[in-house]
């Protein structure tokens, strides 16, 4: 327990150790630590950025999906509209065609009627003339009475 040269020796030893630590141990370790700290911070920032980007991408994808759905329903609505239009057009076409056919048929019938009526009229005239001849027992001068005959035929 005597104070002796050990005191000085310890001081010198201590100083040498501190110097060695100061020169060769502390700087590389602290540098590595701060470098790693920076690296980790960068990594975390990158991760956060990545997450943010992913969120953005998801949002964008959802938007696109929504757009696509909207467009699809638009297209379907248009198609339905167009289909009903086509059906309507077809109906209209059919109706006009039917009316046209009917009109044609009506005209033909009219013609037939007229023709039959004409024919009938002529027959009636002949019949009437022959009937009148029989009643009068004399020949009717067709030439003399042509005008009255025509008038008669016209009345029929």
């Amino acid at each position: 327990m005597n104070i002796n040269l050990t005191l000085i020796g310890q001081s010198i030893t201590f100083a040498v150790f501190v110097w060695f630590c100061y020169a060769y141990i502390w700087p590389p370790l602290v540098n590595a630590l701060s470098e790693r700290k920076k690296k980790i911070a960068d990594g975390l920032a990158a991760a956060e950025r990545g997450q943010h980007e992913q969120e953005l991408a998801e949002k964008k994808a959802a938007e696109r999906l929504k757009d696509a759905k909207g467009q699809a329903s638009d297209i379907i609505a248009q198609a339905q509209k167009r289909a009903s239009e086509i059906v309507d057009e077809a109906k209209d076409d059919a109706r006009t065609e039917a009316e046209r056919i009917k009109a044609g048929a009506d005209a033909e019938i009219e013609q037939e009627i007229n023709r039959a009526r004409e024919h009938l009229r002529k027959e009636v005239v002949v019949l009437a003339i022959s009937g009148a001849e029989k009643i009068l027992k004399k020949e009717v001068n067709k030439d003399a009475h042509a005008s009255s005959l025509d008038e008669l035929a016209g009345q029929l």
Binding site: F17, Y24, I25, W26, L29, A32, E35, R36, K38, K39
Partner: peptide, 14 residues
């Protein structure tokens, strides 16, 4: 102490 820490200091990377 110095030997152990010096070794760690040499191996120190990020």
């Amino acid at each position: 102490f110095l030997w152990i820490f010096r070794r760690a200091a040499k191996n120190a990377t990020a």
